[in-house]
Design a protein around this nucleic acid. Structure first.
Length: 526
RNA sequence: GCUCUGGUGGUGUAGUCCGGCCAAUCAUAUCACCCUCUCACGGUGAUGACCUGGGUUCGAAUCCCAGCCGGAGCACCA
């Protein structure tokens, strides 16, 4: 009796028990904890990426979690680009759209997309208001000088300037009359606060480098994250903020501004950093960017890169990544995401749809060997006919021409022993040929004979399989030529892969496509 | 140094607020077996964890104290 039947029986015998079971099921789907003080229809959350590059897999967590809560609470999902540093975290103009595409691939669509660099006047207005409230002062101390005073809990001489002067100096900042480092606007908090991180922090500073977006290129006076983000969260009606533990003090800093304005601070949740196993590459936009610039990686979608674009090119569905991310929960400690969990989720999603094909790999430590199939105790058929999918006979069978074939050398039995070519039949390995045998599938069922995959030597497709661990060459069966690019297939006994192209374009990579391949595929996982 | 913050199997997670139903949940991983033209899927089983030490209590993963270990902030980065 399978699960469905069991439930049906239970429904007849004890309906109330079945109802309990179903309630439990529903609870299971809520992997994430409830949001504090959340009311359906009134939850607003935002992802606030810095557009300094396309996303790595760790970035999937924010849209995954926000998107999941949005669905649960019928809330709103804002994507706000916090692009207020034209210099050290300089925005990459292509990254805005790349990030939006990454979000779409994950299966979400932001209800609103905004850019902080469009909103400078708003921040200036709030700064002026804050100055009038006596909550901010212009300061020309050097960073080091102020830091020393701050650590000693002492105010700098600028702290007591009269509002009029502050107003004028801030206007001069906005007008770009100071150079980088000459003047900042500080929020007046508590210079003796026991946590030094909260003492009179910088709200605006001067940056000489123009912003890469043309619309914002004239501005020189830029808000710091805590000011900009704090103002925007309030103005856009954000009710729940999720941020990393690196921003643990942000809420405490921003509360000073909220208090000046009489605003109510949103609920805040923090979570730890995500690391991903299986990659040598650090999960960091700038590191990946450097590797690409140095030619160590071919691009953001290099299969060896721990990026969203790479996942996508490998045929891993966004949903699989999202499920793994929500499984991570909301813990404040750092977590390691096991890629095997993403793969397990993806397998659930693609196994049923992925048709089966043969790819014989030709690796240095396990080369493909080419052998003719000859008549043995029985005449050798001209072709094999394996199913497209073991559980879907209705999808039909492929035709794999026999004659001269290739197999992976480690699959070959000892000389004189038998092996079953999947979808074709039994052969005996005779050193330089494979002799077709008069035997039926019983020899396999008895356990004496292994079943292996194979491909025709002549009609086979010269294939490049790009994997996390580097490129693998091989020969694939010709039926793959009829598969549309972007289809996810399973290479029998190898793993799932996405068909990338049916003819390759040459690259200047050491090991990349030479342009002669008939097929390029990206490996997903076993 | 100062200030936050956290520690449940290899990984993630439930349980911790309001001690007993927890000799600890679920998933993944690994191994074995079953199924199978031997991959994958599916099924069965096994492996494997409450950071340490005290205390409170009839009873502690849960409460208290100390220690150990980890992460973060103290930027004119986000």
């Amino acid at each position: 009796m399978d699960e469905a039947e069991r439930r049906e029986r239970l429904g007849e015998l004890a309906p109330e028990k079945l109802a309990e079971l179903e309630i439990d099921d529903e609870a299971d789907e809520h992997v994430l904890p409830d949001l504090p003080n959340a009311e359906a229809g009134e939850v607003v959350m935002r992802a606030a990426p810095n557009p300094n590059g396309p996303w790595h897999v760790g970035h999937a967590r924010m849209p995954a979690v926000i998107g999941t809560y949005k669905e649960r609470y019928d809330g709103e999902f804002i994507c706000r680009f916090d692009d207020t540093d034209p210099e050290t975290k300089r925005p990459d103009l292509d990254a805005y759209d790349a990030i939006l595409e990454d979000i779409e691939y994950l299966g979400f669509e932001p209800d609103r997309v905004i850019r902080a660099s469009d909103r400078l006047e708003t921040y200036y207005d709030h700064a002026r208001e804050l100055i009038d409230l006596g909550g901010a002062y212009t300061c020309s101390c050097s960073g080091e000088a102020f830091s020393e005073l701050k650590n000693a809990g002492e105010a700098c001489p600028h702290r007591d300037k009269d509002v009029e002067t502050v107003r004028e100096e801030f206007a001069a900042m906005v007008d770009g009359e100071y150079g980088s480092g000459e003047m900042v606007l500080r929020v007046k908090t508590d210079i003796e606060h026991k946590n030094p991180a909260l003492r009179d922090w910088v709200a605006f500073r001067m940056i000489d480098t123009p912003h890469p977006r043309e619309e914002a290129s004239e501005y020189r006076c830029w808000p710091m994250l805590d000011f900009q983000s704090g103002v925007d969260d309030h103005l856009t009606g954000v009710t729940h903020i999720i941020r990393g533990i690196d921003l643990q003090d942000s809420a405490k800093r921003q509360r000073f501004v909220y208090d000046y304005f009489g605003w109510e601070y949103p609920e805040v949740l923090h979570w730890g950093h995500v690391q991903v196993d299986e990659y040598d590459v650090k999960l960091s936009t700038s590191t990946i960017k450097e590797l690409i610039e140095d030619g160590e990686l071919t691009g953001w979608d290099d299969p060896r890169a721990p990026t969203i674009q790479s996942m996508r090119r490998r045929g891993i569905q966004g949903r699989a990544l999202v499920d793994s991310m929500t499984d991570l929960g909301m813990s404040t400690s750092d977590v390691d995401l096991a890629m095997s969990s993403v793969y397990a989720n993806n397998r659930d999603l693609v196994d049923d749809g992925a048709n089966r094909y043969f790819l014989v790999r030709d690796r240095e430590d396990d080369p493909a060997v080419e052998l003719p199939i000859v008549d043995g105790d029985a005449p050798a058929p001209e072709a094999g006919h394996p199913r497209f999918h073991p559980e879907h006979p209705d999808r039909g069978e492929r035709e794999v021409p026999a004659g001269r074939v290739v197999v992976e050398s480690s699959d070959l039995p000892p000389e004189g022993e038998r092996v079953w070519l999947k979808g074709y039949g039994p052969v005996r390995y005779e050193g330089d040929e494979l002799a077709f045998l008069d035997a039926d599938i019983e020899i396999v069922r008895e356990g004496d004979v292994d079943v292996i995959h194979w491909a025709p030597a002549e009609e086979g497709l010269d294939t490049l399989l790009r994997t996390v661990d580097g490129d693998v060459r091989g020969i694939a069966e010709p039926a793959l030529a009829d598969v549309d690019p972007d289809t996810v297939v399973q290479f029998v006994r190898v793993g799932f892969a996405r068909i990338d192209a049916l003819d390759s374009e040459a690259t200047d990579e050491d090991d990349g496509p030479h342009g002669s391949e008939d097929l390029v595929a990206y490996y997903a996982h076993p």
